[in-house]
Design a protein around this nucleic acid. Structure first.
Lengths: 217, 217
DNA sequence: CGTGTGCGATACCGATCGGTATCGTTAAGG
DNA sequence: CCTTAACGATACCGATCGGTATCGCACACG
């Protein structure tokens, strides 16, 4: 059903892969409109002809970039979840530790979905569509998670967590690694703890949260 | 010290004002790089020559756009604060009601500071500088506010509120007006309530928050 | 009544944009 | 060994990019 290629979405060909990886780097670092095709050609070491053999238009290349980003994001998300203890609160904290580390890395330039989508006015542009789907997926995953945690208004709480995370994505270097993780985890703890359904679990979790927050560093 | 002009930052001249207002509209709706000078010329009804008489480069026009946005944002912020009761928590809720309304308006396309800055790779580009200053100013105002509220870790709480707000700015139509205000205010209530210094005030505030949240709608 | 300053119109600049056409080369598979 | 398909190199396309130069006109002010 798929090629033997172990890599991620699209770019099953080696030439296409060189193009897509170079384009991804350049798009992310400079913005889509600031990167011309010739720049991608130079950086990828692939002929312009070949580039257009695999991607008919620049927009298609942009879409492939975002699709891959989306795919890799959920791949890592699932890995973090798999490594976390089977407790929804611990799962959330592990995810926030991962995100905190991600946004405080050197050269982090924000969420590619947000950045790229902002460059296109048409709401039906591929970039806008992929971004909507990506963000809807995150919100849905957070909903499932906070329902398992057992908060009173899971939809609102999930959205609050989504806003917190998207805010971190656009923090633009204002967060150090330690600070990012602490701020995200304590913030989430307040958001879920405040409205937790069963007060017993709530109290216990708040006491033990100091340990649980450190599961993924 | 200033011209008699009652309008906002820069563009003290009528021609310059026409250029800047047209450019602002186009930049915000389409992104900076997607808008060519000729488009601004056509939309403003001003000759290209005149445009370049008032703004030497496109970057300067971009900077003027962001400076004005920054200025108007704090102007409105101050108005909201002035209209709110002299209670820090009520002030915060009023600000969030304002922001909730803002991000759920038709045609809202996100925070211009965030959007425009994302289009430039150079961290010393005017757009990036203005954005940093703008976001630092917001964080500082939130710090002062949460200190007055009296939370345990004001710096962290202020950053959490900033993330929540920036997240709302990038929510891209996922928030209805009613939902936005409720989610922001309840979120902020959890963030400040959870860590409030004096438990008595905390408990009282949580009970009365349903009323207090509706001060500005 | 002159005079200067700001504006509009237009033509133009080199550079770059996304995208195509042509053609010679390379390499893998039967 | 020969076919075939993919790739590289290059030249080219019209359109647009940000920015400038030239010039004629209108109008406010002394």
């Amino acid at each position: 059903m798929a090629t033997s290629n172990g890599s991620s979405a699209s770019a099953d060909n080696k030439t296409a892969e060189k193009v897509l990886s170079a384009a991804s780097r350049l798009f992310y670092a400079n913005g889509v409109r600031a990167v011309g095709i010739e720049w991608i050609v130079a950086e990828s070491g692939v002929a312009k002809t070949s580039l257009y053999r695999h991607f008919q238009t620049k927009d298609e290349l942009v879409a492939a970039f975002l699709e891959r980003e989306d795919h890799e994001f959920w791949e890592q998300w699932d890995e973090v979840v798999a490594a976390a203890p089977d407790d929804p609160t611990a799962e959330l904290m592990a995810l926030l530790a991962w995100i905190g580390g991600r946004v405080s890395r050197d050269g982090y330039r924000g969420c590619p979905q947000i950045n790229v989508a902002a460059e296109f006015a048409d709401a039906e542009h591929p970039a806008r569509r992929i971004r909507r789907r990506h963000k809807a997926a995150m919100l849905e995953r957070l909903r499932v998670l906070v329902r398992r945690i057992g908060v009173i208004r899971p939809d609102d709480t999930a959205m609050q967590l989504a806003l917190l995370i998207d805010g971190a994505f656009t923090s633009d270097g204002r967060l150090t690694k330690a600070g990012a993780v602490r701020i995200l985890q304590n913030g989430a703890d307040a958001l879920i703890g405040h409205l937790r359904a069963n007060e017993r679990n709530s109290r216990a979790a708040r006491q033990g949260s100091g340990k649980r927050r450190r599961i993924v560093s």
